[in-house]
Amino acid sequence: MESVNFSEVIAQTDIEMELRGWTTDQGREYLKKTYGKRSHFLLTQVELLDFLQYLASQPTPTLDEIIIAKINVEIQWLWWTQKQGWEYIKKIMGSDRVFC
């Protein structure tokens, strides 16, 4: 097997996760379930390439889906429920401007 630059592949997995709107927690859960490891830094070369191939095969979400996912992550960081967060957003933006 040809040698692979781990840092480049890890960077590419980060990009693919970002493009698909995956959070770090979603990536960690997938890695634990699939490989029994918590981080892509702990994967073997074969596992890392397999993970990258899996990510690249997943559909890319729409811009709206990415924005909603990012908002939901921010709401979690505030320790709000989804309902609290979206009610606040609707209040400050006006309910006719919110797309969910």
Rank of each mutant, 00 (worst) to 15 (best):
F51R: 04
Q58G: 03
E74R: 08
L43N: 08
Y54S: 02
A69G: 15
L49S: 10
T44P: 01
I75D: 02
E8L: 13
E74Q: 11
A11V: 01
L49E: 14
L19A: 09
V4G: 03
I89S: 01
F51Y: 15
I68N: 07
R20H: 07
I89R: 01
R28N: 05
S57T: 06
I10G: 07
L49F: 05
L63N: 11
W80N: 00
K70G: 08
A11P: 02
T13L: 09
Q82C: 04
T62H: 14
W79V: 07
A69H: 13
W80T: 00
Q76N: 09
L63V: 11
I66W: 06
S39E: 09
T44H: 10
Y54N: 04
E18Q: 12
L63R: 15
I10V: 15
N72H: 06
E74N: 09
K83C: 00
E65S: 09
E47F: 03
P59F: 14
K33Y: 08
R20F: 09
I75T: 05
G36H: 11
E8A: 11
T34M: 10
V46D: 11
E87D: 13
Y35R: 03
P59I: 15
L42Y: 14
Q84G: 00
R20D: 05
M93F: 07
L31G: 03
K70H: 13
A56N: 12
G21E: 05
I75W: 04
E74S: 11
C100N: 10
L19P: 00
G94C: 11
R38C: 06
Q58M: 14
K90Q: 07
T34E: 11
K37W: 10
R97L: 04
T24L: 10
R28A: 08
I89Y: 02
V9T: 13
I75G: 01
N72P: 08
E47C: 03
T34V: 12
G27A: 15
M93A: 13
G36N: 09
T23I: 09
F41H: 14
H40Y: 12
I92D: 04
N72R: 08
I15C: 10
L55P: 01
Y35G: 04
D14H: 15
N5G: 06
L42F: 13
D50V: 05
L43E: 11
C100W: 00
L63S: 12
K83F: 00
R38F: 06
R97W: 02
K70E: 14
W22N: 04
G94L: 09
G94T: 05
